[in-house]
Amino acid sequence: MKVELQKDNYTANPFVFRKALVVNKVEEAPGIYTYFLKFDGEFKILPGQFNMLYVYGLGEVPISLSNLPIFRNGYTLLEHTVRVMGAVTKAITLGLGIGSFIGIRGPYGNGWPLKDAEGRDITIVGGGIGIAPLRPIIKYVEREREKFGRMNILLGARTPRDMPYKYELDKYGAILNTKLLLSSDTPADGWVHHVGFVTDLINNIDVNIKNSVVFVCGPEVMMRVAVKKLLGRGFRKEDIYLSLERRMRCGIGVCGTCQFGHYFVCRDGPVFRYSDIEDYLWVEGI
């Protein structure tokens, strides 16, 4: 019977995490903080992938990479942006300050297909905390500018105050050949940008639709509206990528709680090509 079984790259207990040090903490918006985590050793992680962050005694949460990682002098520096939601994120955002430890294991998931995007126009559509996993794409395109076509960045939040990374949004707009469009669900004093849903902005972008990729992340309702609008403008199903969210307990395809149709979001996603999930996305509760 032995011969039937094959362990793919199985070495040790994959639940074992590394111990990371919080070296900086930045408040992005009410209840949203960016953590700079430092730990020994090299750690390869791609935009769109995520890590499981562990708080002692409480549990783990999947959190996306929110900036390109830095490897230097034998250590890794990662950025993760966390919004306070429930049991564990509350303990992270309210409890963990600079100098605290946190457990980290990963990287998990597939990441955004940036190689495939080379030579094409890029459109980014992000809502709320969904902007965090999209941010490393912006940084990557900025660094490797000549590899990509035009970039449109569409970001939305409930109110201007809730928008993360306010301090660097101007820089996104200043990237060569890039247009930044912002939106707030509710009007506010001094807000000169769009009021309404971020998906409204899809009608305003100027791209070569036939040679484009679109990266979308946000609440699922927003992503569905985005898909409808994008298809309406003639984008191809294969060119639209969504980063999905599901309850996640393990991150490695064994706990079964992140299933979406026949996919395990943690392992087969979280980034999906729309054409691959078309049958599921519109079925309530699948």
Binding site: E4, L5, K7, D8, Y10, G253, G256
Partner: peptide, 21 residues
């Protein structure tokens, strides 16, 4: 096996411990 073997540590260890069926 298809889901857990080689991925879940508890399952893998216990599955490997089965010497005959």
């Amino acid at each position: 096996d298809g889901i857990l073997y080689g991925k879940s540590p508890v399952y893998t260890k216990r599955r490997d411990s089965i010497k005959a069926i």
